[in-house]
Design a protein around this nucleic acid. Structure first.
Lengths: 120, 120
DNA sequence: GCCTGATGGTCGTGTTTTTAGACCATGTCG
DNA sequence: CGACATGGTCTAAAAACACGACCATCAGGC
């Protein structure tokens, strides 16, 4: 067992690259919201509740850039912009569903662990 | 910021609660590293590469608190501390594996999308 | 005509989070 | 003695983020 496995994440590492985009506190939440259907910018603001305008815009731009989300602008007044999951995004969310189901099933244990830790 | 104004995500929302802990740039990376086996603090530093000591400590503490990770301290000098996935953590990582495999399979498309976005 | 409201953001500023680096205790090796 | 290794913590500086103001535009009420 030579120690050549110390560097776990290689430079062009897909896991690292995708996780860096996903692991930013908001991306998964936005994708989850969109997985229920197309939403406008203000719908996402209201739905998520505690995201700032700036971060929502930034998160959406990145998700659009990576091809997870589709942005459709309507030339109306007041302006209307609709966001929805692309096929790639839907495909990704199928994977995430497993995680969400797991969270649902194990949330109780986690909360219990947290409480126990705080008291021990 | 009002911490309980979510509309889509209800108050005792498992998805939101777990995602908030997981979606923090480092947790998934640490869990991924530990999924290959037990590691010491310094192994994790080297393996992940660009995490700061403070964030690694903080991330590990939270992961331990939630019960994903087990911390074993050996009374030696210099001190030795081993981190490993708990059964709960392993169970969670089974779900994450799907995401990782997906990332592996779709990384190419994502990079292509990014490039296309930057040019158009 | 004028004021108000709605939309999808951007901008500037102040607050929070993260980083980089020094530092600590302690025993081993040279 | 003096350097080295470990697992952190503490502090000051940098980066990320939140909050409110603001923009253009048109519809509807007055």
């Amino acid at each position: 067992m030579p120690a050549d496995e110390t560097v776990i994440f290689d430079q062009p590492c897909p896991i690292r690259d995708v996780l860096d985009r996903i692991g930013d506190q908001w991306s998964l939440l936005v994708l989850e919201a969109l997985s229920h259907g197309t939403l406008r910018y203000s719908d996402l603001m209201r739905g998520i509740g505690d995201i700032s305008k700036q971060m929502l815009a930034k998160t959406l731009r990145r998700l659009e850039m990576d091809g997870f989300v589709t942005r459709k602008v309507f030339a109306e007044v007041p302006p209307r912009v609709e966001y929805s999951l692309s096929p790639l995004g839907r495909s990704f969310m199928q994977q995430v569903q497993g995680m969400i189901a797991w969270a649902d099933a194990n949330h109780r244990d986690i909360v219990l662990n947290r409480r126990a830790y705080e008291q021990g």
